[in-house]
Amino acid sequence: MRAQNQRTSALTIGTSKAWTGGAITALIVLALMWVIPILWGVATSLKTEKDAAGPALSVPSQGWTLDAYVQVLTQGEIPRWMFNSFFVAVSVTILTVAISALAAYGFSRTEFRGRKWLFALTIASIMVPGQILIVPLFQQMNSMRLTDTFAGIILPQIVAPMMVFIMKNFFETIPQELEEAARIDGAGRMRIFITIIVPLSRPILMAVSIFVFIGAWNNFLWPFIVTNNPDLLTLPVGLATVKNAYGVQYAQSMASAILAALPLMVVFALFQRQIVKGFATSGMGGQ
């Protein structure tokens, strides 16, 4: 943060007032354009249904209220969907990080027949757009009788070649000497992995976990395809498909949207530094 301030002053010295003023105005206008849809949604969610369907640009005649939130949290299925999303996202994150970290260790620190070849195959698969696999994957889930199950939603999401790649690159920067010392003490590979590699890799494991969690929490297409069971719907799927249940209740539909947006905004607020750094260093997001 201090480096940032120094740079800021280095930049603004010698700039004309018109330039600075123009930059500030542009920034404020852009930021407003970006927050207005969300603020407008929040405002709507705090109105009564009658006001929500009334004139947009006037102060609500019946005042502000939390009614819409109370309604969707007590009568609607939002809590159910939120639990499902949470369960799915946490499961996907744990499984993905576990198998990817193990694989990254295997690929980076051990030797076995076909290692290079298998790693090349893993990297090549990053190119495959997941969406084109939806059709055969659905058919496969059907024949495995996994449609309309949590396993069917979760398992296809745990394959993340990109995360293997990111973690492998990281593991390779850990000094080999640490591992050798432990080996001399008689530690097996698994113990080395758990007691040396994992603790030293906390930042990258954290960043990868956050990516995977965001991706799984927001995933729409796969959960939408693989389940029709109302009890298994995740938040993004439920919001999009069961909207009609509310009819034209705009305040409630906005309250649901805001509730669905909140968890990741909290995650971002808590882990802002790791997320920003992680995005910057890996050049990718949850897509």
């Binding site: 970006w34 849809p37 969300i38 949604g41 927001n218 938040l235 949207a257 971002f268």
Partner: peptide, 17 residues
């Protein structure tokens, strides 16, 4: 922030806009 929103929240907000 918008990048962190699930697609169905994005579309709900904009359908309303």
């Amino acid at each position: 922030t918008p990048y962190l929103l699930p697609v169905s929240v994005v579309t709900a907000l904009w359908q309303w806009m």
